[in-house]
Design a protein around this nucleic acid. Sequence first.
DNA 1: ATTTTACTACTGACTGGTCGGTCTATTCAA
DNA 2: TTGAATAGACCGACCAGTCAGTAGTAAAAT
Lengths: 205, 205
Amino acid sequence: MPQTRVKDKQGKSAKWQARRHEIVDASAKVFAERGYHATSTTELCEANGIGKGALYYYIGSKEQLLAAIHDRVMDEVMLGADRAALAGGTPREQLAGLGEELLDVIFRFPDHVWVFLHDFPALTGKNAEMFRQRRRAYERRVESVFQQGVESGDFRPLDTRLAVIAWLGMHNYTYLSLRAGGHFSVKEVAKAFADIFVWGIATRG
Amino acid sequence: MPQTRVKDKQGKSAKWQARRHEIVDASAKVFAERGYHATSTTELCEANGIGKGALYYYIGSKEQLLAAIHDRVMDEVMLGADRAALAGGTPREQLAGLGEELLDVIFRFPDHVWVFLHDFPALTGKNAEMFRQRRRAYERRVESVFQQGVESGDFRPLDTRLAVIAWLGMHNYTYLSLRAGGHFSVKEVAKAFADIFVWGIATRG
DNA sequence: ATTTTACTACTGACTGGTCGGTCTATTCAA
DNA sequence: TTGAATAGACCGACCAGTCAGTAGTAAAAT
């Protein structure tokens, strides 16, 4: 059993994993610009400066590449949710933390997120099922914060499902309008959104 | 110059326009289910029960069909904004009216809206420019309500651009989660969203 | 009343080209 | 000398769009 060439359980070296990672990231950019279905594997080869053989050596198939981009987004989103949960605080603070973490992912991985929110219907079979499960898991985490807030009396009684839809839409949709390095920073947007959602926009009476 | 066969300025009869309308609507459904790029013109023929010749006799090209679906959505959205403006009221009432009209379009034309929000990057040249202009025009209308509210003191001072992005995201994103005939009615969702946005979710102190 | 003309509405075979993916051959590092 | 890494020719399938032809019908001409 050789020890110099270290391989993981899929039988691939760390070097292979790193190169694959690079290719996934570069391809996400192309998908974000042209769309998944509209991007040919030949274009992916050009963007990565490699031939078809090398491309398929790393990605397996076009759909597996798409799934890898989705995984990357969900990994980051879940990590952000973990950090927000670890920070603790009142339901209001929890919600603000969750929002800032989500916006942070959207600003740090704009291409991946674009692909994630646009081309998920192209996933089939097991890939689609995995995607749906992870997405649902995240939505449940958000919903539980709303439920806690209602129970503790911090939030007024409300339909938590509708609140989740409103909150997710408000944050996710920024991938269309806001970019890193643009007019607003993550913290500014997160603050403004948390204020609107928690306190509303009406003047106090 | 014959008078019996009535044609419009494009030289097409009312009958032709009606049939085209049917084909646009049926095609929107297929695009929503399978995606614009993933749908072949042969599939569109099958869905409409016609051959290639007839399809192109009515649609001109695949992209013109896509543009027609976009026009249909924007026409309805603008009509809704007109109705909301005509109803008048305070900035708060204006905003609530605008939200209900927008959600109404999303519930009445779920397929068209799905295509509108998913496949707009496939529009090119003049089609893309027209789409962008109309979208911007609508966003300006929404923003002006926020500006009026801030000026009148009904709304607290806020960045109106960020507020528009938050408001649009909250409403538009429902196309993913909410369907007509589902658990919630348009009025329920509109009410819940207006309450959250205007008053926030925190309990009053 | 009947033929001719003109035009709408439509078919489906066909075209040039592109697609995702495979395969054989080759390079190169260890 | 072995196997990881790579190129690019190649494959069958499928793509958007075209075209020659035609059935049906309403208007015009006879």
